[in-house]
């Protein structure tokens, strides 16, 4: 959704449009970076509340950067000792039927190793990698989201992939 640059964030419509445009990305960013244990949902809410409170000071063009910075900082300060741990979705629909027990065990072990490997990535690597692989975000989009260069995003994703493969496949 496109938000006109000249509009004032204090206007209900503009604000709602900003929410529609950025809330999901912000949520995903927080989810992948800090994990579901650090209340990405609440942090998104908090960030937008803060944007609303500062609606006179923030221009529309800077709203996205503002939201990401605020949400990131808030999560960091709330991080306390909560462990960042992404969980493999439990209710994932089965991809295969009639698997052999050996295959099932193998799959289970593979997923367990993957889960551990993903959680062992740095938050930055994990965020970039999952946004790319799972959310299908382009390198450029991720770069804008994280406020880093496209080249840095590429490096992070590739490093993350290499690490994962090393741990999962034993390469």
């Amino acid at each position: 959704m496109k938000v006109a640059e000249k509009e004032n964030i204090c206007q209900e419509e503009t604000f709602n449009a900003l929410f529609a445009a950025h809330a999901k990305d912000l949520y995903n960013f927080l989810y992948y970076k800090y994990g579901p244990g650090n209340n990405p949902h609440d942090m998104v809410q908090e960030a937008f509340i803060k944007l609303w409170a500062n609606c006179h000071k923030v221009i529309v063009a800077k709203a996205r950067a503002f939201l990401f910075t605020v949400a990131n900082n808030q999560t960091l300060s709330a991080l306390a000792k909560t462990k960042t741990a992404l969980k493999y979705a439990e209710d994932r629909p089965k991809d295969y039927t009639a698997e052999t027990p050996a295959y099932l065990l193998e799959e289970k072990e593979y997923k367990a190793r993957l889960e551990q490997a993903i959680n062992e990535l740095t938050p930055e690597q994990r965020t970039a990698f999952l946004l790319n692989r799972v959310e299908g975000k382009k390198h450029q989009e991720i770069a804008e989201m994280l406020g880093i260069s496209r080249k840095a995003v590429e490096k992070r994703i590739y490093t993350a992939l290499a690490k994962l493969r090393q741990k999962v496949e034993g390469i």
């Binding site: 929410f19 995903n28 994932r92 799972v134 994962l164």
Partner: peptide, 29 residues
Amino acid sequence: ALEKLQQAVQGFKAPAYDVPQALAELNKR
């Protein structure tokens, strides 16, 4: 290997984010 990883990694997808509901909640707050 990459395809397999790509498939497996989908299991870590963030839960669907319900934008309208979140917005309603936000507006209340």
